[in-house]
Amino acid sequence: MAEILVLVDHVDGAVRKTTTELLTIARRIGEPAAVFLGSGYEAARDTLARFGAVKVYVAESPEFDDYLVAPHAEVLAQIASTAQPSAVLVTSNPDGKEIAGRLAVKLESGVITDAVDVDSDLTTTQSVFAGGYTVNARVTQGTAIITVKPNAVTPEPAETTPVEEKVAVTISDAAKRAKVVARTARAATGRPELTEAAIVVSGGRGTGGEFGPVEALADALGGAVGASRAAVDSGWYPHSHQVGQTGKTVSPQLYIAAGISGAIQHRAGMQTSKTIVVVNKDAEAPIFSMADFGVVGDLHTVLRQATEEIEKRKG
């Protein structure tokens, strides 16, 4: 059975949930082989084994952190050319897309980005044009390089004892052109990661800058907080929380939009949410057309009351 390479997305060995999703998908297609680049493998080992990596290529070097991802693409291409996998799966985020793009050129292979599902025969599903269309596609040349969005599948454990293969790391000068001078991690909020959360409560211009009620409702539901671009541009909430075309795409079980009108660029980031609840004081706001449940009213009072009622019900 051909190997399916899964590039491990991690911070110092702390494996991101998306990687366990990719391993779950890889198992459908062939033999999952994880590729670990960077430092901290020791911390990553157990998770990769638990989610079914039959093999792990370990290229440990602190040097990766000194540059943007060109070195990752270089070493991944080197591993792929000996492993001859039928596919390489990478998380769909800015770094993952750069790696995928470079890899496609290096391996002379086709690339598909933002898959929301991948079949056992490598047919991908994508959601395009602001969620208006579903596209099925496949790579027809070389190794299928596919970036997969978070939350595509529910990660399923499948314990293995992976074979570890150490890979010597030599990074070319060409891959060292973009040096990272400083890196600032985002401040921890104690809330779930926006793209991974099962519940997202978002606020827009209608909050008037007051995100307290939005955060309180998110906390009552154990959800993440999102924001429209209007709220982000006004400086009310950090850009890392923006939902939409130029922010994050979310696909939670429940999306609550408060004080958001529903511009196409916002819908592009939340259209595939399972259930949508809307609170907006304008009954004509376009976002109501997508609502499974909506309240025409002032979000400040409605969200506060909803939060109180939820706390009461939780007892």
């Binding site: 909506g294 009213g297 009072t301 409605v302 506060r304 909803a306 009622e309 939820i310």
Partner: peptide, 13 residues
């Protein structure tokens, strides 16, 4: 879609 008549939050819950 309902209009808030003082109980909009309860209805959401």
């Amino acid at each position: 879609i309902v209009t808030d008549e003082g109980d909009g939050g309860v209805k959401v819950a």
